[in-house]
Amino acid sequence: MNFSTFMSFVSYLKDGISLGAVYAIIALGYTMVYGIAKMLNFAHGDVIMVGAYISLTMMTKTGAPPVVALLVAIVGCTLLGVTIEFVAYRPLRKASSPLAVLITAIGVSYLLQNLALKIFGAGPESIRDEQKIISGSPVVLFNGQLAISRITILIVICIIIIMCALTWFVNRTRRGHAMLAVSEDRDAAQLMGVNVNGTISLTFAIGSALAAVAGVLLFSAYPSLTPYTGSMPGIKAFVAAVFGGIGSIPGAMIGGILLGIIENLAKAYIPSGSQVSDAIVFAVLIFVLLIRPAGLFGKNIQEKV
């Protein structure tokens, strides 16, 4: 392998990490909600889409700078997430089948998509360069052999910060301990005086705020936004969360990044790869689950009588 083919490999790897880091941010939201509320929140992907639309609207309608738009998107999505949980999921928490809340989540997903369709229309929205969260020429290394765009660097910095903050929050604060307790045994936690409803709301708030961040980053890196933009990254992030062991925070991060790398390398090196890259991602997931049925970092709990 000569230097330039190696550099093109590194370049694909870098794109994979960038995409994977976005998946990881989304997957963190999925995995926390799953760990604590024990539900698959199928509407999570659509919260990403809403976040991107909010930031875009802020910038085009009020001319706010990207950072302000991002903050508004975070606040908007947090409120949205908590509202969804309160209206649609909380009444079903003690339903006789866990499938009930799953279908309701699908209903919420349809609702968000169609609301966006009604308000913003179907056409793909684009973004001007100065509206991106970060702009400017890419950082060039090795005499121009490798160009790293600024958004890639920002995404990677974001995921590291989010990761550290979440780990600190869950392991070092009272609220975080409450989350761990609720995810371990909801009833026991309630008996010990943990506010279960409040903890679940908080989880949804954090997950949705992360979704807003992911939405803005995703839209800056891949500037095409439709009401259905969120659903595929949502599914991929779900896969990433399962890949790393659903419920595990480091698992979601590693899973997301690995997923992004696999997807990008498959696109680059496999014949007709861009069409089958999703199939390859899913095949790797199945392979991992067959060897480690609880994901890479998941705890395998043996069921007892």
Partner: peptide, 15 residues
């Protein structure tokens, strides 16, 4: 359709 779906789920399943 989406609103009806959510409403029907809540009506049929919420304790």
């Amino acid at each position: 359709y989406a609103v009806l779906l959510i409403a029907m789920m809540l009506f049929n399943w919420a304790p």
